[in-house]
Design a protein around this nucleic acid. Structure first.
Length: 308
DNA sequence: AACGATCTCAACCGCAACGAT
DNA sequence: AATCGTTGCGGTTGAGATCGT
């Protein structure tokens, strides 16, 4: 497929956007809606390429974008979702309403990556460190892929054990009559942890069975019809269904009904299973899990309200 | 106060995916 | 089936902001 240049660079402005340009873009999109980005600059009177306009709109000017620092809930969600899907920023962003893939990607690269690396090293987990190195250094894509997954798993384990131990100390200090600590503990308990709720639900159970059983690598809902129903109760934002060109739909802003959300989550989970199947099939990995051991999860799961 | 180092994040680039023709 | 046109995604860059000395 021949790639077409996004614009003929002749006379097209690049770099930071001026307030006047922002206004032109916002006015145009609000009047006509997003879409046909290629023609938009001409129609809106902007000396920019369509791609640049789309990026500016989706990452900065969209009215539903949430500004400000990431909340602890968002922080946790990013960590956990990343442990499952890796650098699929758009998928992660779809689970965090108001956040863009670019923002999450930046947050990961600047804050979380560094933090996790330190945790991994501080934990004297030589395997994780070695895998992290392998992930970046290996010239073999399959080995890199496997290393990234295993690193993510180890990181998730470290985080969950960290979470459970910190919660234990928080609760202990809360009982020692510190009002601020008890507030923190209450917040912790109420955290809308998507991944853990999902994991503790019928969906999680089904997913675990599917991943362990392998062979067929069927999606969780196929293994457990109740899963699809449970999924519908999850937050509405959902990954793209693979809309691609022509649609002009805005992935992060798209709202879905319950069924669509379930379908999207289904696809989301299926993909994780497929990743595992790939590793098992191609690399002969004997024992591999994208998830922390059951005892770690059991420890962590008591921090959150049951999903069902 | 000045300077260099480090960090942050908006924006760009190249590629892949997808629908249309 | 092949090609074209458009959009979306992930990786990377670089200017400005912040921090440390």
């Amino acid at each position: 497929m021949g790639r077409t240049p996004c614009c003929d660079s002749k006379g097209i402005k690049k770099g930071p956007w001026a307030p006047e340009e922002d206004k032109l873009l916002v006015d145009f999109v609000q009047a006509n809606g997003p879409g046909n980005w290629r023609m938009l600059p001409k129609l809106a009177g902007l000396n920019r390429c369509g791609k640049s306009c789309r990026l500016r709109w989706t990452n900065y000017l969209r009215p539903d974008i949430k500004r400000g620092p990431f909340t602890p809930e968002e922080h946790n969600s990013i960590l956990q979702l990343h442990a499952i899907v890796g650098n699929k920023w758009s998928m992660i962003a779809a689970q965090l309403p108001g956040r863009t893939d670019n923002e999450i990607k930046n947050y990961w690269n600047t804050h979380l990556k560094k933090q996790l690396r330190q945790e991994a090293l501080a934990g004297a987990d030589a395997a994780a460190a070695q895998l992290a190195i392998t992930a970046t250094a290996s010239s073999c894509p399959a080995a890199r892929h496997m290393a990234q997954w295993e690193t993510a798993r180890l990181e998730a384990e470290a985080r969950l054990s960290l979470l459970s131990s910190s919660a234990a100390t928080t609760v202990a200090s809360a009982t020692a009559a510190s009002s601020s600590s008890s507030t923190a503990a209450a917040e912790h308990e109420a955290a809308p942890d998507i991944f853990l709720r999902l994991w503790n639900s019928a969906v999680g159970e089904s997913f675990r069975c599917s991943a362990q059983g392998q062979g067929g690598a069927l999606g969780p809902a196929a293994a457990n019809p109740a899963a699809a129903g449970a999924l519908a109760a999850l937050p509405p934002a959902a990954p793209r269904g693979g809309g691609g060109g022509g649609g002009g739909d805005d992935s992060s802003a798209a709202s879905t009904n319950g069924t669509e959300a379930a379908d999207d989550y289904q696809a989301f989970l299926d993909m994780a299973v497929e990743e595992l199947a790939l590793l098992h099939g191609r690399l002969g990995v004997v024992s591999f899990s994208a998830f922390p051991p059951a005892d770690v999860l059991a420890e962590a799961s008591c921090l959150f309200a049951p999903f069902e």
